[in-house]
Computed example of a mutant assay.
Amino acid sequence: MIGTLENASLLDDADELASMVVHSSLYAEYMASKQSVDRDEHVQQLIGKFLQVRERYDEVQRFGRYHPDYKSVIKKMMECKRELDTHPLIADYKKHEKQLSDLLGELSMVLARAVSESIKVPNGDPFFERSCGTGCGSGGKCGCHS
C-alpha cells in the first residue's frame, strides 16, 4: 500500500471511529460487566468447571454416541452450560457483549454499503441472519436457506 495523504486520512478516521466506540456507553457497560465476571469467585469456579467438562465433551465427541460415557458427558455438559448461562453476572455480560457486537456489525454494514451495495457483511446482514445458525448444509431443507 502506497502511503498517501488520503490513506493516512482514512487511517486517522478509522482510529477516530474506534475511539468513539471505546468511549461509548455500550463499551463502558460491556467492560463493567466483564470486570464483574472476572472478579466474582463463584463465576470463575463455574467457568473452570465448564471448561473441564467441555474438554471431556470434546474428547467424547470424537467417538460420538459410541463412546461409553457419551450420554453422561452430554448431560453434564448441558447442566454446566445451563448453570453458567443462567448466572445473573454471565447473563448480564452476554447481553452487553451482544449489544456491542450488534453495534460493530451495524458499523461494518454502514462502511461496506458506503463502498458498494454488493459487499457481503456477515455481521448484521439480513442475508446471513436467515441461516439456522448450525451450518447444516441441507441445502435449505430445514428452512434456513444456508
Rank of each mutant, 00 (worst) to 15 (best):
P88V: 02
K120Y: 09
R56L: 11
R65F: 06
N7A: 14
F127D: 06
A91T: 14
M1Y: 01
D92T: 12
R130C: 04
A14F: 14
V21H: 08
K71C: 02
L46K: 00
Y93E: 01
G64N: 03
K75I: 07
H67S: 09
M78H: 11
L11N: 07
S24F: 11
Q44P: 02
V53Q: 13
L5D: 13
R130K: 15
R56K: 15
R62Q: 14
H23N: 15
P88H: 09
L51R: 15
K94M: 12
V115F: 08
L11S: 01
C132K: 11
E129D: 11
G3L: 10
N123T: 09
S146P: 00
P88L: 00
F50G: 06
Q52I: 08
V73C: 03
S19E: 11
Y66K: 10
S19M: 07
G137T: 05
P68T: 09
M77E: 03
D92H: 06
K75F: 01
M109V: 08
A14M: 14
I2Q: 09
G124W: 13
L46R: 01
T134L: 12
M109W: 05
Q35H: 11
A114G: 07
D69I: 05
L104C: 04
A91Y: 04
D125H: 08
S9K: 14
V110K: 14
E29N: 15
G3R: 09
G137E: 02
V22Q: 13
G137A: 06
Q61T: 02
V115R: 09
L51N: 15
D40W: 01
T86G: 01
D85L: 10
C132N: 08
C144Q: 02
Q45L: 12
V121H: 01
P126S: 08
D38C: 10
L46N: 00
L84H: 09
E59W: 03
D102E: 14
L46E: 06
N7P: 03
D102L: 10
K141V: 11
R65P: 02
V21L: 03
K94D: 15
M20E: 13
F50D: 01
S72C: 00
Y70Q: 03
V110M: 13
R54N: 15
G48C: 05
Y30A: 02
E79A: 13
K120E: 14
L46D: 01
G135E: 06
P88M: 00
V73H: 04
C144A: 14
G124Y: 14
H96V: 00
K49M: 05
S25R: 14
